[in-house]
Design a protein around this nucleic acid. Sequence first.
DNA 1: TCAATTCTGTAGTGGTCGCTAAATAATGGC
DNA 2: GCCATTATTTAGCGACCACTACAGAATTGA
Lengths: 197, 197
Amino acid sequence: MEMRKPSRGRPRSFDEDAVLDAVMRAFWEHGYEGTSVATLEAATGLKAPSLYGAFGSKELLYQTALERYACEHGTVLRPDGPAREAVSEFLNEAADRFSESGLPPGCMVSTAALALGATQRGVATRPARMRSETLAGIEQRLRTAVTEGELPTGTDVGALARLFGAVVQGMSVQAIDGATRQELRGLAAVAMAAWPQ
Amino acid sequence: MEMRKPSRGRPRSFDEDAVLDAVMRAFWEHGYEGTSVATLEAATGLKAPSLYGAFGSKELLYQTALERYACEHGTVLRPDGPAREAVSEFLNEAADRFSESGLPPGCMVSTAALALGATQRGVATRPARMRSETLAGIEQRLRTAVTEGELPTGTDVGALARLFGAVVQGMSVQAIDGATRQELRGLAAVAMAAWPQ
DNA sequence: TCAATTCTGTAGTGGTCGCTAAATAATGGC
DNA sequence: GCCATTATTTAGCGACCACTACAGAATTGA
């Protein structure tokens, strides 16, 4: 994205990747407004000017952390094989990831930025778009399953995609509330009963 | 709860109920951290000392607003009749309430206080308990349905209750993201396909 | 009318917010 | 060695945070 010519000048004294990982965890656990720059300083060991020099602003830092989360902890539908198995695996992987020990509970995207102060509504647009893309991805997968005969014609793929998306979002809420991995897996299992036929 | 002897002294110049309603909407839309006392002053037309005199603190005001929301906008399972219809009505009522025009989208409880700053984790305990009680209520209703023969013995009522709870929580997320009432109703409809048998 | 009581508005409190100017430190190019 | 460039540290910016001391206003009981 940005071209670096780091040969000149004083070199960075920190591992940008490790810092971004710590930032991601802080935002993941405490949200955008619940994470202050002082919190990020404590989590990374850096001072504010270093953070701003490397990442620009708190909002840009949040968005960068979001991208990192999507790449490293995100869940996507397996594009091949039966759609039913793909969705089932998707839900089970979410159940496992949302209850990973050593990481904050829940999902950094599914339940992110749902209530923000009026002055910073823009922060919510990227998480919202990511959720919307997840729904669209599920719907597209189901649509293909209909054309391939795996699902009956006339299936309301939009509503079904919203259902599985809601299951993931609800799992994130319940993980934050302390639900165990076993409980989330049970939730994922009974959700598959909504699969047509 | 509190005994009033309002005969003496200068009387209140505002309608406590109307003020609490405005406060509730502000917290509902912007969350606890996203709503400042200045925001509440603007929403109510009162000055801070009046708010503090009547309600104590921002946190107490939030909890009072939560109780008001539960009473006036909350959804409960109808205790009589078939459990299946009760759950179906429950989901449909949530779909309608979360997309009520003139009110903030989504639910003030289902997706509340999921990420707070470390210093005010206590604010989240009451919404979390309310969600937990909702899950327990669904589970109890399903358990009764099992003993009455409406659901097969061996039904995982815990997982099934978590599923319907997750559907409500996911509907709240999607309502905030702009889902229409029709879309939420479709979601509720396909969710009922997960009902055993 | 006076005193006691309660509420309202003014005007702040100390603290934290996101952010940054300026000085110092560490590198490469010459 | 010396300069240009970049990073880190110190120190602090104005704005906002939740909250409140205080004085004035409005009521009841006497």
